[in-house]
Amino acid sequence: MPQQQTSSPGQGQRFDWWAAPAAAPQPDRPAPPAPAVPPPAPPVPSAPPAARTEAAPPARPLAPAPVPPVEAPSAVDSSEVYRAVQGSDAFQEIKRSYRAFVLPVSGAFLGWYLLYVAAQAGAPGLMRSQVAGPVNVAWLLGLLQFASTFLLTWLYARNARTKRDRAALGLRWDTQDQLR
Protein backbone atom coordinates (compact mmCIF):
# COMPACT_ATOMS: atom_id res chain seq x y z
CA MET A 1 0.00 0.00 0.00
CA PRO A 2 1.56 3.30 -1.00
CA GLN A 3 2.20 5.75 1.77
CA GLN A 4 0.16 8.92 1.63
CA GLN A 5 1.78 12.18 2.55
CA THR A 6 -0.24 14.77 4.36
CA SER A 7 0.69 18.14 5.72
CA SER A 8 -0.02 17.35 9.38
CA PRO A 9 2.62 14.68 10.19
CA GLY A 10 6.30 15.48 10.12
CA GLN A 11 8.57 14.74 7.13
CA GLY A 12 8.58 11.01 6.30
CA GLN A 13 6.02 10.11 8.98
CA ARG A 14 3.06 7.96 8.16
CA PHE A 15 -0.33 9.14 9.38
CA ASP A 16 -3.23 6.73 9.45
CA TRP A 17 -6.31 7.44 11.51
CA TRP A 18 -6.32 3.88 12.86
CA ALA A 19 -2.62 3.96 13.75
CA ALA A 20 -2.52 7.43 15.32
CA PRO A 21 -0.84 7.50 18.74
CA ALA A 22 -3.02 8.01 21.77
CA ALA A 23 -3.38 11.63 22.74
CA ALA A 24 -1.39 12.72 25.76
CA PRO A 25 -3.31 14.38 28.59
CA GLN A 26 -3.62 18.07 27.94
CA PRO A 27 -2.21 20.39 30.58
CA ASP A 28 -5.21 22.74 30.59
CA ARG A 29 -7.51 19.93 31.74
CA PRO A 30 -7.10 18.48 35.21
CA ALA A 31 -6.76 14.72 35.42
CA PRO A 32 -9.84 12.93 36.76
CA PRO A 33 -9.61 12.20 40.49
CA ALA A 34 -8.55 8.72 41.49
CA PRO A 35 -11.34 6.62 43.04
CA ALA A 36 -11.23 6.64 46.81
CA VAL A 37 -10.36 3.28 48.33
CA PRO A 38 -11.82 2.64 51.79
CA PRO A 39 -9.32 1.51 54.43
CA PRO A 40 -9.36 -2.22 55.20
CA ALA A 41 -11.60 -3.30 58.05
CA PRO A 42 -9.89 -4.45 61.28
CA PRO A 43 -9.83 -8.23 61.78
CA VAL A 44 -12.59 -9.65 63.95
CA PRO A 45 -11.50 -12.19 66.58
CA SER A 46 -13.21 -15.52 66.04
CA ALA A 47 -13.43 -16.70 69.67
CA PRO A 48 -12.03 -15.78 73.07
CA PRO A 49 -8.64 -17.33 73.92
CA ALA A 50 -10.16 -19.67 76.53
CA ALA A 51 -12.51 -21.21 74.00
CA ARG A 52 -9.67 -21.86 71.57
CA THR A 53 -7.92 -24.24 73.94
CA GLU A 54 -10.76 -26.77 73.91
CA ALA A 55 -10.48 -29.54 71.38
CA ALA A 56 -12.93 -29.37 68.52
CA PRO A 57 -14.85 -32.54 67.72
CA PRO A 58 -13.44 -34.40 64.71
CA ALA A 59 -15.15 -33.62 61.44
CA ARG A 60 -17.23 -36.43 59.99
CA PRO A 61 -16.68 -37.21 56.35
CA LEU A 62 -19.75 -36.63 54.21
CA ALA A 63 -21.53 -39.76 53.06
CA PRO A 64 -21.50 -40.19 49.29
CA ALA A 65 -24.77 -39.49 47.55
CA PRO A 66 -26.68 -42.59 46.55
CA VAL A 67 -26.20 -43.48 42.91
CA PRO A 68 -29.41 -44.26 41.04
CA PRO A 69 -29.44 -47.60 39.27
CA VAL A 70 -28.45 -47.48 35.64
CA GLU A 71 -31.18 -48.65 33.35
CA ALA A 72 -30.33 -50.75 30.36
CA PRO A 73 -30.80 -48.98 27.03
CA SER A 74 -34.20 -49.56 25.52
CA ALA A 75 -34.53 -52.26 22.95
CA VAL A 76 -36.37 -49.87 20.60
CA ASP A 77 -34.13 -48.42 17.91
CA SER A 78 -35.11 -44.80 17.23
CA SER A 79 -34.22 -44.99 13.53
CA GLU A 80 -36.63 -47.90 13.10
CA VAL A 81 -39.39 -45.96 14.85
CA TYR A 82 -38.90 -42.95 12.59
CA ARG A 83 -38.82 -45.13 9.47
CA ALA A 84 -42.07 -46.76 10.56
CA VAL A 85 -43.65 -43.34 11.15
CA GLN A 86 -42.49 -42.11 7.75
CA GLY A 87 -44.10 -45.09 6.08
CA SER A 88 -47.37 -44.81 8.04
CA ASP A 89 -50.63 -43.78 6.40
CA ALA A 90 -51.09 -40.89 8.88
CA PHE A 91 -47.75 -39.35 7.92
CA GLN A 92 -48.43 -39.78 4.21
CA GLU A 93 -51.82 -38.09 4.63
CA ILE A 94 -50.19 -35.11 6.37
CA LYS A 95 -47.67 -34.78 3.53
CA ARG A 96 -50.42 -35.12 0.92
CA SER A 97 -52.49 -32.41 2.60
CA TYR A 98 -49.47 -30.09 2.76
CA ARG A 99 -48.63 -30.57 -0.90
CA ALA A 100 -52.26 -30.19 -1.95
CA PHE A 101 -52.29 -26.68 -0.49
CA VAL A 102 -48.73 -25.42 -1.00
CA LEU A 103 -48.03 -26.41 -4.59
CA PRO A 104 -51.10 -24.83 -6.25
CA VAL A 105 -50.93 -21.69 -4.12
CA SER A 106 -47.20 -21.25 -4.75
CA GLY A 107 -47.74 -21.70 -8.49
CA ALA A 108 -50.58 -19.17 -8.52
CA PHE A 109 -48.53 -16.60 -6.60
CA LEU A 110 -45.48 -17.08 -8.82
CA GLY A 111 -47.69 -16.68 -11.92
CA TRP A 112 -49.25 -13.51 -10.45
CA TYR A 113 -45.78 -12.07 -9.74
CA LEU A 114 -44.44 -12.92 -13.22
CA LEU A 115 -47.57 -11.40 -14.80
CA TYR A 116 -46.85 -8.17 -12.92
CA VAL A 117 -43.20 -8.11 -14.07
CA ALA A 118 -44.18 -8.94 -17.67
CA ALA A 119 -46.79 -6.17 -17.67
CA GLN A 120 -44.18 -3.71 -16.41
CA ALA A 121 -41.82 -4.67 -19.24
CA GLY A 122 -44.33 -5.31 -22.02
CA ALA A 123 -47.04 -2.71 -21.50
CA PRO A 124 -45.54 0.41 -19.95
CA GLY A 125 -48.32 2.58 -21.36
CA LEU A 126 -50.99 0.49 -19.66
CA MET A 127 -49.04 0.52 -16.38
CA ARG A 128 -48.84 4.34 -16.48
CA SER A 129 -52.63 4.69 -16.78
CA GLN A 130 -54.04 6.73 -13.90
CA VAL A 131 -56.52 4.94 -11.63
CA ALA A 132 -57.21 7.53 -8.94
CA GLY A 133 -55.22 10.72 -8.43
CA PRO A 134 -51.49 9.97 -8.43
CA VAL A 135 -52.07 6.20 -8.24
CA ASN A 136 -51.53 4.40 -11.53
CA VAL A 137 -52.00 0.74 -12.53
CA ALA A 138 -48.37 -0.14 -11.67
CA TRP A 139 -48.74 1.21 -8.12
CA LEU A 140 -52.05 -0.56 -7.69
CA LEU A 141 -50.69 -3.92 -8.86
CA GLY A 142 -47.54 -3.46 -6.75
CA LEU A 143 -49.61 -2.84 -3.62
CA LEU A 144 -51.77 -5.84 -4.48
CA GLN A 145 -48.58 -7.95 -4.45
CA PHE A 146 -48.14 -7.06 -0.77
CA ALA A 147 -51.79 -7.67 -0.01
CA SER A 148 -51.72 -11.08 -1.70
CA THR A 149 -48.59 -12.05 0.26
CA PHE A 150 -50.32 -11.34 3.57
CA LEU A 151 -53.51 -13.06 2.42
CA LEU A 152 -51.65 -16.22 1.41
CA THR A 153 -49.73 -16.26 4.68
CA TRP A 154 -52.99 -16.09 6.62
CA LEU A 155 -54.57 -18.82 4.44
CA TYR A 156 -51.56 -21.09 4.95
CA ALA A 157 -51.62 -20.66 8.73
CA ARG A 158 -55.37 -21.32 8.84
CA ASN A 159 -55.03 -24.39 6.61
CA ALA A 160 -52.21 -25.80 8.73
CA ARG A 161 -54.08 -25.13 11.98
CA THR A 162 -57.34 -26.71 10.82
CA LYS A 163 -56.11 -29.62 8.70
CA ARG A 164 -52.60 -30.71 9.62
CA ASP A 165 -51.52 -29.57 13.08
CA ARG A 166 -53.81 -31.85 15.09
CA ALA A 167 -52.86 -34.91 13.03
CA ALA A 168 -49.15 -34.05 13.24
CA LEU A 169 -49.35 -33.55 17.01
CA GLY A 170 -51.06 -36.93 17.45
CA LEU A 171 -48.38 -38.58 15.32
CA ARG A 172 -45.68 -36.86 17.37
CA TRP A 173 -47.14 -38.08 20.67
CA ASP A 174 -47.41 -41.63 19.33
CA THR A 175 -43.79 -41.50 18.19
CA GLN A 176 -42.60 -40.19 21.56
CA ASP A 177 -44.50 -42.95 23.35
CA GLN A 178 -42.76 -45.57 21.19
CA LEU A 179 -39.34 -44.07 21.97
CA ARG A 180 -39.81 -44.21 25.77
Rank of each mutant, 00 (worst) to 15 (best):
T162K: 14
P27V: 03
A65Q: 11
A119M: 11
L143T: 08
P42C: 07
A41N: 04
A41K: 09
V85N: 01
P21E: 08
P48Y: 00
P66M: 11
S46C: 04
G122K: 01
Q176C: 13
T6A: 12
D77R: 11
D177R: 15
G12R: 07
A138P: 00
P43C: 02
W112S: 13
V117W: 06
A119N: 01
L179C: 07
P25H: 02
A55H: 04
V105S: 06
E80C: 03
S46T: 11
P61H: 02
S88C: 03
A108G: 07
S74E: 05
P124Q: 00
V137S: 00
S8V: 12
L140V: 03
R128C: 02
V102K: 05
F109N: 12
G107V: 10
R180T: 12
A84T: 15
R83H: 09
G170F: 00
L114Q: 13
L103I: 14
V70R: 10
Y98H: 10
Y156R: 07
E54P: 02
P66G: 05
P61F: 01
Q26E: 13
S74K: 08
L115W: 05
A59M: 04
P68N: 07
W154S: 08
P30T: 07
R158K: 13
L179R: 08
P124S: 01
Y156S: 04
A56F: 05
F150L: 15
E80Y: 00
D174C: 02
D77H: 05
A55V: 12
G107A: 15
Q145T: 00
P25G: 03
A22C: 04
P27Q: 10
Q3W: 02
Q5F: 05
P69I: 02
L126T: 11
P61V: 06
S8R: 11
A19P: 00
L126H: 02
Q13H: 10
S129M: 13
Q4F: 06
P73C: 08
P61C: 01
P25W: 03
A147F: 09
I94A: 13
P66S: 12
L141K: 00
L110K: 08
G125L: 08
P45L: 09
P40N: 03
A132N: 13
L171K: 04
A75M: 08
